[in-house]
Design a protein around this nucleic acid. Structure first.
Lengths: 254, 254
DNA sequence: CATTCATGTTACGGCTGACGTAATTTGCTT
DNA sequence: AAGCAAATTACGTCAGCCGTAACATGAATG
């Protein structure tokens, strides 16, 4: 199909990963639907599922569909202790979340999207819901901290020609986004008022490595109605401190 | 090699899963070591790793080794929301852990071992450390609840001929283990005094399904020195109630 | 109760993609 | 610079994976 990009990829493994991702997205999905979504034949998917099941990567549901299995649970836990960023950040996120009593997230840039790889939600009833694995555009909301410290040419590549408008406040003009990114870089943090979701505000700071490259970003997300200017000021101070703490932990810790 | 058991397993997928497991066990492992541990050639492992890396299932470390990647993190989180038992049990475990201020675990039987699939630790300094993915024998400690409600012939199969002695209190006589299992079945819970680790006590209750089959078990693990008889009595009541709550949630909640 | 349809599963021959050996490169240690 | 081990590439051979097509299963319909 495509002329480049595929050197030495084991196809049945690659397919099986796609199958897993499909099951992760839709719990209790059936063989036929997986085959359709991936544009593959049923026997091929069946062989893949059989193998994955044989290793407890998937299991069958009562209704005859498939869901992720225990081995994935185990792997996932191992991953969160192996990925330094998550390992180091988790207690800091938890403490930050308790201090502000709002939801906090750790995000990294994954290609042209922001990917949440850890989160903490406070135990109050009304709170911002966050999901590990969720992807968001880089050009809107506080995800901009992941973009603002990159070389400007790369920024330009990562901003789509015609950005999606998610709310009335979503920035869709490329030139204005670039200006805003410069502002974020100079300030060292980013505040978003309803750029991704109407009723939310989000305050983010970058986790920086040597040489000013960005490793990830942490942000506090809160309902706008209960967030005053004084809260925002406090959030900026706290989120910046937490981000610096993680940065230092990454350089210091072996 | 072995004459049975392998019908229609995709070998490169099966191998790649072994590679993942190997990396989960040893963070920052190198190509050569993986190949040795699995008894495979390096090119084969390399192709597998390349494919896994291509999909962010693994990533390279600074030192040139491999660790689990972001996609595994995402999958793992999805798994914990898809596996009904974990999803349902998590809040109950958390509440139980807060009530007793000790570590609690959710375990299932995986072949002839107990496998921890969820846990909660209290925030006090001295506490029992638990690890999702850790395996323990079924015949010792409070894991016996996973064994006690099985048919006796199956119990016999699952107890090794010569059980490992982990502490002086580990039961190693098959006949005595079988008697103890009967006691556990009649009591409906299990208390272990230092059978797996010298200084620990553990109280467990089974999560039962219709017909009395065991789905899993939850247990409270605590340092022996601060656990009085009155505490044990309280733990039995609480762990049994929590287990019943989960059982009912599984039958009721569609 | 027979019919139909969709889904899941098995069978099988062809072909390509995965295989191991061996050569080469990389990169670190001496 | 030389030496060594680990990582990677090259390549011809073969079997593992492939899709088609037939079969089985079971739920929905008349």
């Amino acid at each position: 199909m495509n002329p480049e990009e595929d050197l030495q990829i084991l196809q049945s493994v690659d397919l099986s990963i796609s199958v897993l991702m499909e099951i992760a997205k839709h719990a209790d999905i059936r063989l036929t639907e997986i085959a359709q979504n991936l544009g593959e034949t049923k026997p091929r998917i069946l062989r893949s599922l059989r193998t994955l099941k044989h290793r407890s990567f998937v299991q069958r549901t009562e209704s005859g569909g498939y869901r992720l299995g225990n081995a994935i649970l185990v792997l996932g836990t191992a991953a969160s202790t192996q990925i330094d960023l998550v390992k180091l950040a988790s207690p800091i996120l938890e403490s930050l979340s308790q201090k502000v009593n709002e939801t906090v997230q750790l995000r990294i840039r994954d290609h042209a999207e922001a990917l949440c790889i850890a989160k903490f939600e406070p135990s109050r009833d009304l709170r911002v819901h966050a999901v590990v694995g969720r992807r968001r555009p880089l050009y809107a909301g506080s995800s901009k901290v992941l973009l603002a410290f990159l070389p400007e040419e790369l920024q330009a590549e990562l901003i789509p020609g015609r950005p999606d408008r998610m709310t009335p406040r979503t920035p869709v003009d490329r030139a204005r986004i670039l200006v805003e990114l410069r502002r974020v870089r100079e300030a060292g943090y980013c505040i978003s008022h309803g750029e991704v979701s109407e009723q939310l505000v989000s305050v983010a700071a970058p986790i920086l490595a040597f040489g000013g490259s960005v490793i990830g970003g942490i942000n506090i997300a809160a309902p706008a109605f209960r967030t005053q200017q004084a809260d925002l000021d406090r959030y900026v101070a706290l989120v910046t401190a937490a981000a610096r703490e993680i940065s230092e932990g990454l350089s210091g810790g072996r």
